[in-house]
Nucleic acid binder design. Structure first.
Lengths: 337, 337
DNA sequence: AACGTTGCCTACAACGTTGTAGAAAGCTTC
DNA sequence: GAAGCTTTCTACAACGTTGTAGGCAACGTT
């Protein structure tokens, strides 16, 4: 039921290589021969064996995208954009979940899929630059996010500090003074957290507002539950913010939930801002003000960087590619227009 | 920088096949030889070429999961479970987005990744049984969802009719009588919609409530925006339901949003129920009552079915595997406990 | 002492494809 | 009308791996 070039060749009465030439669109084939071969292909429902082709060509046409978790909406949305961008290069995307665990990430970076993928787009949480130093093994990689400052690979980022600064400034501009920050992390995994916290403190300083430690709430992970827990803890400790800047949108959705449970109105009592612009936020009650990174651009930059590496410029110096973002101002800070 | 069995063999002073035997854990290798080979492997940082291995073995160790969209939370959550279940078989999962477009789905089914994947778990929206009839080409496939009633493949489902009936009965049990149904579809793609609508009407009939056409709102897609639009249209047409049964959770989240915009309280004025039990619903304001399919079980059934087909029972008659579900009763119908 | 068995290892071929080299035929050019 | 180019096609080898067949010791059995 499954046929090879050889079978097609015999049916069409030509050599194996001629069939291969037809399949690959080689120019110098007589139209008559081409037709005959194409008929044979159709008749046998022939499909090339990609394993064999890959072996021969040394390329697989598959790139991998490694993210912590697929059901974090930000990564799911990003994945969709990466798949779309990769399709333009005829690449298939293999999506890998690392769970954010360092060991798993190390395995991915070391290339467990070696020879199965042509390149890797990697959004690490726990991995360090040292983990990467060793095992790249020649497979090009593009890093996403802030975790690795200066690694052996191209790097796509947005300006986290500026985005956080502008968001905080927006809250200040609304007259808020007691602005909580949710999602602080002191672990090495918390690179994004550090940058966003820096933007937050810069904005406070610029407005002449004192930094108040009690308003800064840590969150181990950045899920809805963590955001809700952090806000609950603030409130039960008697802290009364008039705004909450959450370091991502799922935290913010959790925060909305906790504020609701405490009978606080958003934004009248407490304004809320997030980060990532996930779909949920656009339909939350109230809709969520957030930093909207250009995910489509991030994906495209990453894919193009890989394409560059694969296209010969293997040894070019690593670059840092900056994607744009914008502030999406919505009900959770502006109220209902 | 990239080495082959041959390089390792030369370094260790043994034959290529002996290295292969060590790599594959073949029993009859002298401990001394094994150690020497392992050292050589470590020294060269050797990794097997999977393309070559695949070519030789005829298996790739990769299965594909094809879903309409990754950033629909239900599919993202399902994908995570499939990846987890597949890992137990040492399979890598290649995730494919079809966009729900029939042409793309046909391509996937025809096996564009032929010889690249050992099996396919497929959640089609638009595909028909005829599309499948032709091109399976021997690659085992498992279907998810309701689209194809009786195809040439194993099939994992939940009892949509019963789940919808119970949900509607729950709303009736709360004293609601004017229950809207959101998400009806008359297109062939709307197989799930038809089954859920059937459950809805059965529950009404059982309670002696007349079916009211004006309460049934269609929705082309099942996104938040569609749910919001459907409810807005109902309300602006002067229809006043006291409950809304949405055919999935994203519709329900959109519905919550639209009800909020109209100043209606949930559940006091309108109770809301969804379907899928996505993470968002558990943190929505209010939290969402929903049908919770056992996604982990669905994923496991699908993967095990594939494993069975790959493990020899290729020609066994196709089976229909039913996964359990439960009703998750939350604030959007019960109110705040 | 002859025999079969087991353990350890090697040589060879094959998986299905494509790059290279080159043959045969037709065409252009002087 | 010979030389050289182009077109069309073929044969062969190679990509890196593993299954098969078999060789050679060392062992236990008769």
């Amino acid at each position: 039921m499954r046929h090879r070039l050889k079978d097609v060749a015999e049916l069409a009465g030509v050599s194996v290589k001629t069939v291969s030439n037809v399949v690959n669109g080689y120019a110098h084939v007589r139209p008559e021969t081409r037709t005959r071969v194409e008929q044979a292909i159709a008749e046998l429902n022939y499909r090339p064996n990609l394993s064999a082709r890959n072996l021969r060509k040394g390329r697989t046409g598959v790139i991998a995208l490694a993210v912590p978790e697929l059901d974090i909406p930000y990564f799911a949305e990003l994945a969709r954009h990466v798949v779309t961008a990769a399709a333009e290069h005829d690449w298939t995307v293999l999506i890998d979940q690392t769970g954010g665990a360092r060991e798993q990430e190390r395995v991915v970076a070391a290339g467990i899929r070696d020879h199965l993928i042509d390149g890797l787009i990697f959004s690490p949480l726990a991995l360090t630059a040292e983990d990467l130093a060793g095992g790249l093994d020649g497979t090009p990689m593009v890093l996403l996010g802030e975790r690795i400052d200066r690694g052996p690979a191209d790097h796509v980022v947005i300006d986290n500090v500026a985005a956080a600064r502008e968001t905080t400034a927006h809250l200040i501009g609304l007259g808020r003074r007691r602005i909580a920050a949710i999602g602080a992390q002191r672990t090495p995994e918390g690179a994004s957290a550090r940058l966003r916290l820096a933007g937050y403190t810069q904005a406070l300083a610029a407005a002449g507002i004192d930094y108040d430690e009690t308003l800064v709430a840590p969150a181990a992970a950045w899920h809805r539950a963590d955001g809700a827990a952090a806000v609950r803890e603030l409130l039960t400790n008697g802290v009364r913010p008039d705004a909450v800047f959450c370091f991502n949108d799922t935290l913010a959705l959790g925060a909305l939930r906790a504020l609701y449970e405490h009978g606080l109105r958003v934004p009248e009592d407490v304004a809320v801002a997030g980060f990532d612009d996930i779909e949920d936020g656009r339909f939350a009650v109230p809709t969520l003000t957030t930093v909207a990174p250009d995910k489509e651009r991030i994906a495209r930059l990453a894919v193009e960087a890989l394409a560059g590496r694969l296209g010969g410029e293997r040894d070019a110096p690593t670059r840092e590619l900056v994607a744009p973002y914008r502030l999406a101002l919505r009900e959770s800070t502006l109220g209902r227009g």
